[in-house]
Design a protein around this nucleic acid. Structure first.
Lengths: 242, 242
DNA sequence: AAGGCTAATTGAATAGCATTCGATATTGTC
DNA sequence: GACAATATCGAATGCTATTCAATTAGCCTT
């Protein structure tokens, strides 16, 4: 019995190790050659196994790559969470800065992987999978923003998803843009200004004004609810007309 | 001589027409089936020609798709330039708003093509080609920003490429983000607030300071966008009523 | 307008590669 | 140690982009 359990345990461990070996080989070959350039035969050889064996672990080349990407994005998400957990400062803008710095650097350093992520999007199911990776990662940003609002450091009336899209999208595109200028030296140098620019922008535009909070202005609140009521009446009328 | 020149002219025209027919067929099939799903045979059949003939116009499937994308991005760039040329307002922020609106809508409507653009990036040369498409398109944004600075409406000390990256990147990611929420109705409705948010952000952060500008206050911005949405609904209803 | 030259077109043959599958080896159980 | 169940292997398969030898259409000369 005991030996039974142990041996099946070691068997499982062995399979899991082999799975990791395959993933590792696939990662290397995909990054070097891209999806199309990668040959299953080469991946198999690198993993030290037969070609057919891969297929008892992954259904297809695309799924293999998906697994590689899954691992990559999970790693990113975990790292981002690690940055949030370990950063010393507790104020929102300090943490925002740390996340911006981490993210920008990561996106630049791992440009290969990020390209691969989008290169895989050949059919709709793959598009939605790569979306899920991204969504999971971006959730780290969402949590930070939510917390900033709870702590009263972000304007109460800021639309969180808009702010998050601006933050994330700006950094991602800045990374691409920086990366286009090839020159590795400058690449390193350009990152800090972008990080500071973003933080300053968020501070001035989304930061809660010290003193009066804009969203609290009673006349504005009143106007807003009047508008909402009008809009509802309008919808009702439109509906009644067909 | 004359007949010679004319007939070779018509011959050329004929070839060009055939090229357009192939491109047209390819566009349709690629959009419907994605790059991998598209069969050269199907494209050929749709264009009403033999399979091999395509290869006397384009060297490979990838080049064919590149040509399709080239045409797409050229169209976008031309349209964006058209928007800039035709917009009535001359002030920077008015034009920025027009471009933001055009861009956001375009990216959402043509999500298929934009996915295809990145899906093609299988090897480095294709990455750089798709970068060139983008660069060319983004140049429209650069020109607007440069002009805004010349007119003294953008801070003299704003780093143009940073501002442009923030503008472009935010909108592109917002588009992806909006598009993720599938619901077509909301998709249309969410666009205006994003446009206004961006313009307000640019006004407050990159605009040359001149007293206080209404656009600074986000709650007012929000009210304004609510009003705009209501106004749009009103127009739609009015139109429907004749 | 007939003949000859060139360029364009065709679709059957080729070749590259992911995937399958029957045969073989390994592992676990009694 | 023998039997069953699993895992592994790599040659055979099948699917497609791409090539190519044969055919056709266009154009020019006389």
């Amino acid at each position: 019995m005991a030996s039974n359990a142990i041996s099946s345990e070691t068997q499982r461990a062995k399979l899991e190790r082999k799975e990791r070996v395959i993933l590792e080989a696939a990662r290397a070959i995909f990054v070097d050659h891209g999806f199309d350039g990668a040959r299953m035969q080469v991946i198999a050889r690198r993993a030290g196994i037969g070609e057919g064996t891969i297929y008892s672990y992954y259904d297809s080349k695309a799924e293999l790559m998906l697994a590689v990407l899954q691992q990559f994005w999970d790693g990113l998400t975990r790292e981002a969470e690690g940055v949030m957990a370990s950063v010393q400062v507790t104020d929102f803008f300090g943490r925002l800065e740390a996340l911006a710095r981490y993210h920008l650097n990561t996106v630049i350093v791992n440009a290969d992987f990020i390209n691969l992520t989008f290169a895989l999007r050949r059919n709709n199911s793959e598009v939605s999978v790569s979306r899920d990776h991204l969504r999971h990662y971006v959730a780290v940003f969402d949590r930070l923003f939510l917390r900033g609002q709870d702590r009263g450091e972000l304007r109460a009336d800021a639309v969180l998803w808009q702010a998050r899209d601006i933050f994330y999208g700006s950094l991602e595109y800045s990374a691409r843009s920086i990366e286009m200028t090839i020159d590795a030296d400058r690449t390193a140098r350009e990152q800090e200004p972008v990080v500071h620019q973003m933080v300053a922008l968020f501070r001035s535009h989304f930061g809660a004004a010290q003193g009066t909070v804009a969203g609290d202005d009673p006349s504005v609140v009143q106007l807003s609810s009047k508008l909402d009521r009008l809009s509802e009446k309008f919808d009702a009328l439109a509906k009644r007309l067909g």
